[in-house]
C-alpha cells in the first residue's frame, strides 16, 4: 500500500545517510592534523568538502530529474526519499568540513546559505507530512473550483432573496457578493482568514436589521441569513484550502532560489580556496 517517503523502502536512504554521517564523525574524532585544529584544509577537510560539494550538486539535480518524465531509472519517490535523508546528512558533513571555524567571509556565507536551504527543506517536509490530510478533511470531497461555483450560486440566491427585503438589504448583499475575496497576497493566503471579509460584515448587518424587521419579511430574512451563513462556512473552508496549498508551496520560494545562491557561493568558495590559498 501507500508509504510515506520517510519510511520508504524500509528506511533505505536513512540507512545510507546514517552510514555516511557515522563514517564522517568517526574519521573526524580520530583525525589529528599535523598543524592546529581540524579544518577544511586537511586531507579529511578536502574529503568532506568534496563529498559535500558533490552532494549539493546531486541534490540540486533533483529539480531536473523530477521534470524528466519517461526516462526510466529510479522512480521520483526514491529520489525524493534520498534527497531528504542525504540533504539532512549534509548538515553534519558540511559542519565537520568547517572544523567549526566561522567568520565573515564567502566560506561561511556558503555554509549559512546551505543551512537556510536545509531548514527550509525541513519545513517543507513537515508541510508535506502534515498538510495533505488536513487538506482532504477540509475539502470534504469538494474541489476548490466546486466551492467557488457553490459560493457564486449562493450569491445569486442571496440576491434573489434580497429582492423582497428593501434597498438597504439589497445594497448589503450586493456589496457582499462584489467585495468578498478569497486569497490575496502571501500573508493573506497564509493566514487563511480575511479580517475584513465582506460576507461576514454583511451577515452581521443583516442579522442586526432582522431584529427590527416587520413580520411580513421574517421569512425572507430567515432564508437570507441561512444562505449567508452557508456562504461564510464555505468561504472559511475555501480560505483554509488556499492556506494549506500556500503551506505546501511557500517553502519552495526559499528553498529553490537560495539553492542557486548557494551554488554561486559554493563556486566562489571553491575558487577562492584553490586560487588564493
Amino acid at each position: 500500500m501507500h508509504q510515506s517517503i520517510l519510511v520508504f523502502r524500509n528506511f533505505r536512504y536513512l540507512k545510507w545517510a546514517a552510514s555516511v554521517i557515522a563514517a564522517a564523525v568517526v574519521l573526524y574524532v580520530f583525525h589529528s592534523p599535523e598543524y592546529g585544529l581540524p579544518n577544511g584544509g586537511t586531507w579529511l577537510g578536502y574529503v568532506l568538502g568534496t563529498i559535500g560539494a558533490v552532494l549539493i550538486l546531486w541534490l540540486m539535480w533533483f529539480g531536473i530529474r523530477k521534470r524528466r518524465y519517461g526516462t526510466g531509472g529510479a522512480p521520483v519517490e526514491d529520489w525524493l526519499s534520498a534527497h531528504v535523508y542525504l540533504g539532512l546528512a549534509l548538515i553534519v558533513i558540511a559542519t565537520l568540513h568547517t572544523g567549526f571555524q566561522f567568520g565573515l567571509n564567502v566560506h561561511t556565507l556558503a555554509y549559512g546559505l546551505m543551512m537556510i536551504v536545509i531548514v527550509s527543506g525541513i519545513l517543507g517536509l513537515m508541510a508535506y507530512i502534515r498538510v495533505p490530510e488536513l487538506m482532504t478533511n477540509n475539502r470534504r470531497g469538494m474541489t476548490l473550483t466546486q466551492m467557488m461555483h457553490e459560493i457564486s450560486d449562493l450569491d445569486t440566491a442571496c440576491r434573489e432573496t434580497a429582492l423582497s427585503l428593501g434597498d438597504e438589504i439589497n445594497q448589503i448583499v450586493l456589496k457582499a457578493a462584489r467585495d468578498t475575496r478569497i486569497g490575496g497576497n502571501v500573508l493573506r493566503q497564509l493566514s487563511g482568514n480575511d479580517p475584513n471579509c465582506a460576507t461576514r460584515q454583511a451577515n452581521q448587518a443583516v442579522r442586526h436589521l432582522a431584529d427590527h424587521a416587520p413580520q411580513v419579511q421574517a421569512e425572507g430574512f430567515r432564508s437570507l441569513l441561512g444562505l449567508l451563513a452557508r456562504k461564510e462556512e464555505l468561504l472559511a473552508r475555501a480560505r483554509r484550502d488556499v492556506r494549506f496549498k500556500a503551506f505546501l508551496d511557500i517553502w519552495l520560494f526559499v528553498h529553490v532560489p537560495l539553492s542557486f545562491a548557494l551554488l554561486a557561493a559554493l563556486m566562489a568558495h571553491i575558487a577562492s580556496v584553490f586560487l588564493y590559498w
Partner: peptide, 21 residues
C-alpha cells in the same frame, strides 16, 4: 498505461511522495 514509456506508468513514477498507485 505508458506501454511505450521506459519504466511503466509515468504518473506513478513521477509522484514524489508515493501517493499515486
Amino acid at each position: 498505461m505508458c506501454k511505450d514509456v521506459t519504466g511503466g506508468p509515468a504518473c506513478v513514477r513521477a509522484c514524489p511522495t508515493g501517493a499515486a498507485l
